[in-house]
Nucleic acid binder design. Structure first.
Lengths: 348, 348
DNA sequence: CAGTAGAGTGGGAGCGCTCCCATAGGTGAT
DNA sequence: ATCACCTATGGGAGCGCTCCCACTCTACTG
């Protein structure tokens, strides 16, 4: 099967070279922006490229150069969650923007169930991408190990633990939580509770640590009854808030580990007849669209997610460029922690 | 499970052939599932593949076979809209599910602004995908023409006009709207209005056509004042509903061209003190999550979006397999129209 | 029992690039 | 003038596959 368009094949490097009256190597150098070409020759070649409408054949390039010019954003969650959370789309925006500067192609890969993970493993084994961006990875996920075994450059968003071994871009969850609680203390609140995220996510742990540290820094003792586990979902927020009202009805402030959980908590508070912020002050995390649209608008800690996305790309491109074995290098300068910022609104 | 040593190059076809004691061609045939291999040989080769942990080199394959085993889902909208609308994620789910059966890779490409469109054109010119899925294309979009010029197989969701030239998968908007209005008539409503979608979208036009046809079929005359233009947004729904209440305060039913617009209309109705469904019955379109979560839950016309996604993939794979020039074939059987279904809830 | 089909197989000839070595010519120092 | 050493350039040798033709067997045919 002669699988080709009927109207003329696409021109090849060779044909461009003939047209420009130069050798194949020279055209290749021009295409790839090598400095070792005289200005005159470069101009001639560029003219030939334009005339012929030459576009390099990616497959041939990939085969010869052993690179793909593509990177993958791997989301180890079902698509539904991906779309539900503004976190991901903000991240994607940052990544996309930074990547637009380059010739790199972005692949979006979901690995929410076993079948998809199987496919992903196959995909990675085939080295179909030059590097991988990992978002929201759980502590026990085998993916990072697979990646380093295959020697595929990768950058992770957040960290799996304090001893993260991969290059990473994280935000300062400890300081963010600290500032939120400090703010509530400053407002004169005395019984400040927290609804945590899933504690197998390191960032969620750090937020609890920040909560504890802020309470202790104010000279108070941490009341363990006021720390209620959530799971980052709205329903989890509802459950946790209900539990909280039962455990300690006189609670006057809640720091939720995510805006979505704060939204759930808010519903329960409303049903319980508590007014915001008069009876209970509420602070969320993420500063997502939900926070701005809540009634009253929600005070929230803002993570610079888009910027994190950009930083991840920068880091990953550097990893790809520096093809030394990852093990032989230190992590110095390859693990970023970006600052968080409290955005005050009417809920507190 | 083909666990393989972490060091050393990836094995090649040649090496698998040597290991299995057969020729290169035979291994290729096994890998590609050709029937012209004896069972015994096939088993031997498969064993060698497993032992060596062989994974084909995609770039080499693409170069030699002149195909990429990848297709693109092109979204000519900014990312934000993509993530905001359940339409897209449902579509993506269908597409993903159907594609999981194959070896094909899905690329998600946004072309929301000129720069992104520029990149896309470059990308397509490089033939980096075997086919393209086009969603929510406007009547005057140049993309479909570019695609047929490059002879890249493509399938479009919805149609740009009655005379769509591309293979397409649409849903029966006419019948869907008809059944919605018929339902309202059956409820004894007499002043039924409609808020339309953007009329440069063919499907929105067809919904209006269905509305008219149903009204006329009931032996009534269409009152043009009751047809108010919207734009698929919530704000547009609010504006249209406000306009409607002014034009014709005694309206007792509204058929909105989308759930999002229905949600906007519902707000205005609430503010105007109209109760649902007692004073005004409301019906939306899409049966999205919004419909289920409204108060009262919204009657809506369901499009089988996930199924449409599946159908698009089937069609596209057939297009890719049948590499004859698109112009030389008829569109028979390559344009699908799937049925819509009214989902009744408390709002009507 | 030659004659004709297959079925099953091996391997040459590319696909269109990049990499790198060889070479030509230019420059300045000795 | 000689040498060393640049810069700019040409083109051979692959990269790892698929395609396809040639070949060998076997199994029928008449």
């Amino acid at each position: 099967m002669a699988a080709r368009g009927t109207h003329g094949r696409r021109p090849t490097l060779e044909e461009v070279a003939a047209r420009a009256g130069v050798g194949r190597g020279t055209v290749s150098r021009v295409i790839n922006g090598s400095p070792r070409v005289s200005d005159a020759t470069r101009a001639t070649v560029e003219a030939a490229v334009a005339e012929l409408g030459y576009v390099p054949n990616t497959a041939a390039r990939a085969l010869a150069a052993n690179r793909t010019d593509a990177i993958a954003l791997v989301v180890p969650e079902p698509e539904t969650r991906f779309f539900a959370e503004p976190y991901f789309s903000d991240m994607l925006r940052g990544v996309g923007a930074e990547l637009a500067e380059t010739e790199m192609q972005l692949l979006l890969i979901f690995a929410g169930n076993d079948r998809e993970r199987q496919r992903l493993a196959q995909y990675l084994a085939a080295h179909r991408v030059d590097g991988v961006l990992l978002v929201s990875v759980h502590a026990d996920d085998p993916l990072p190990d697979l990646l380093s075994q295959l020697e595929i450059p990768a950058v992770i968003s957040g960290r799996r633990s304090a001893a993260e071994t991969l290059p990473s871009v994280d935000s300062d969850n400890f300081a963010g939580a600290y500032s939120a609680v400090e703010h509530l203390l400053g407002r004169g609140r005395t019984r400040i509770a927290t609804i945590t995220g899933r504690l197998d996510v390191y960032g969620a742990q750090r937020r609890v640590d920040g909560y504890r540290a802020a309470v202790e820094a104010a000279g108070r003792e941490v009341d363990e009854r006021l720390i209620v586990p959530g799971d980052f979902t709205e329903e989890g927020g509802r459950r946790a808030m209900a539990e909280l009202l039962e455990r300690c009805p006189e609670v006057d402030a809640v720091f939720a580990g995510s805006d979505v959980m704060a939204a759930g908590a808010r519903q329960v508070l409303r049903e319980a007849g508590r007014r915001l912020p008069d009876d209970v002050a509420l602070v969320g995390y993420d500063d997502s669209a939900i926070a701005r649209h809540m009634d009253p608008p929600l005070t929230s800690v803002r993570q610079p997610i888009e910027e994190m996305g950009r930083a991840m790309i920068d880091l990953l491109l550097a990893e790809i460029a520096d093809r030394r074995p990852a093990a032989s290098r230190t992590l110095d300068g390859r693990q970023l922690v970006l600052p968080n910022e409290l955005v005050q609104r009417a809920s507190s």
